[in-house]
Design a protein around this nucleic acid. Structure first.
Length: 428
RNA sequence: GGGGGGAUACCAGAGCGGUCAAAUGGGACGGACUGUAAAUCCGUUGCUUCGGCUACGAAGGUUCGAAUCCUUCUCCCCCCA
């Protein structure tokens, strides 16, 4: 199966320039996707692009991951209704480094294969490109009329906020990237999310006008959620690929909690399973939806690819305890390291063992000694509402005094707000 | 420059001298149900040592009493030039 067919059956393909598929079928082709260093980590929203590159490489082509050290400094207006704040150069540099190390986990950059992946930073070819040279050599080739016709620009011109010259220039900068890669790395295709179509086409246009060459474009579908909310966001914010920002346990949970309809779409996009495997899983899932076979398969595969087999193992163990029937007895069997492993990614608080030995009223403990609740009033209300547990025992009395004999292994206390929010209190 | 309207809790938005810690809707959080789901139903949504305390753009004033009336200021919106 070729690359385009692969994306097509997985429901990832959004738009493709005529002739792209034919070009890819001729043999090994280089293609690139850009990632802007707007944060110090990629998040699940970037995963589609990463998967696109993985499929690209699996199909025998050479993926190029571009980190936008230069474009990130300008700010892509696509999909933005207002001017963006620029990040400092220093922040950008840190971010570029983080993105590089994250991307290197997903693709083969190391091997000697002719299609081993490559990473580039557009800052390298922009840093010595002067403004005058740029407007003479690049800007001259496109009309403002052409640039204004782009959706990303037009929407902002029609809107009330307007747009700066900087953001208006963005498409030229990204377009030049494509030209540069085409010229110097024989990169024939640029891929990206569907919102990137306009920027990509500016690139093929520049290649045609400056280099009299042809280049190709392909975009992927925006990931949607069946309930209409934005993909990749949870109550606590974005789901990051960096284990320090989103623990592997939370990451695993994010995918496990996918709605059935979403899981069916997402498993095609985010797993490398074959069509047959996926259809078999779906059949199994429909026969016993409550087992959430699709969600589990999805969550396991992505967690391993993003983090590791061990990280998945911990995430599974944690999930089993936190949501399974596991009683606190389970924790008694663990040593300190084991306990901390299970609660990795769960918010932790340190409390004084001495104070606990003399007894603390629950509301004081959960609001003042440990910031499980912002105020005692809230703690009290939540307890009265039946929403708080200590060591898996539902609290009923607001005035209950907690003492040291409740500590697990003489050290730990597990507080639960609602069903899903755990807090580990460590007494020392 | 002239005239008018407005600013209320996370958001929208009522209240227009006491009964207002402030209707209603949304959101958020919690409970029941369930598949750690969706839908639905229920509860909570300023702090508190449970005596009170602080709050309706800001600062003053009138009053026994102000989100409500007056003055000044700040900021928004609309209409006319």
């Amino acid at each position: 199966m070729n690359f385009v067919e692969e994306l097509r059956w997985r429901g990832m393909l959004h738009d493709i320039m005529p002739g792209t598929e034919e070009e890819l079928n001729k043999g090994i082709v280089s293609g690139y996707i850009g990632f802007d260093p707007t944060a110090d980590s990629l998040h699940v929203g970037h995963l589609t692009q990463i998967m696109t590159l993985i499929h690209f490489q699996k199909a025998g082509h050479k993926p190029v991951a571009l980190v936008g050290g230069a474009t990130g400094m300008v700010g892509d207006p696509s999909g933005k209704s207002a001017e963006r704040n620029l990040l400092s150069e220093e922040t950008q540099n840190t971010n570029v480094a983080s993105l590089k190390s994250q991307l290197s986990k997903f693709l083969d950059f190391e091997s000697d294969a002719p299609n081993s992946a490559e990473m580039v930073n557009n800052y390298d070819w922009f840093k010595n490109f002067s403004f005058l040279d740029f407007i003479r050599d690049v800007g001259k080739h496109l009309t403002v009329n052409y640039m204004m016709a782009k959706d990303s620009v037009r929407k902002r011109l029609e809107g009330e906020t307007g747009m700066s010259f900087t953001e208006f220039s963005y498409q030229l900068v990204q377009g030049y990237d494509f030209y540069w890669l085409w010229k110097n790395k024989n990169c024939l295709i640029q891929m990206g999310g569907s919102d990137q179509w306009g920027n990509i086409v500016t690139g093929t246009e520049l290649i045609r006008r400056i280099g009299s060459g042809s280049a190709f474009a392909l975009t992927t579908q925006l990931i949607k959620k069946s309930d209409g909310t934005k993909f990749g966001k949870t109550e606590s914010g974005a789901v990051w690929l960096d284990a320090k920002k989103t623990s592997p346990y939370k990451f695993y949970q994010f995918w496990l909690n996918a709605a059935d309809d979403d899981a069916k779409n997402w498993i095609r996009i985010f797993s490398l399973k074959s069509k047959e495997e996926i259809e078999a899983l779906e059949k199994e899932h429909d026969g016993a939806a409550h087992l959430r076979i699709l969600q589990k398969a999805l969550a396991e595969e992505i967690t391993i690819r993003t983090h590791s087999e061990e990280a998945l193992h911990t995430a599974l163990k944690t999930s089993e305890f936190l949501f399974g029937t596991g009683s606190v007895d389970f924790l008694h069997q663990l040593d300190d390291e084991g306990v901390l492993e299970v609660f990795e990614g769960v918010q932790q608080f340190n409390i004084s063992k001495t104070e606990l030995e003399s007894g603390i009223i629950v509301t004081d403990l959960l609001a003042e000694k440990a910031a499980v609740f912002p105020s005692k009033g809230e703690a009290r209300k939540m307890i009265q509402g039946g929403g708080v547990s200590l060591n898996r025992q539902k609290l009923t009395d607001v005035t209950q005094v907690v003492s040291a004999d409740l500590l697990i292994n003489g050290k730990y206390l597990i507080a639960q707000k609602g069903k899903k929010n755990y807090f580990l209190l460590i007494a020392s």
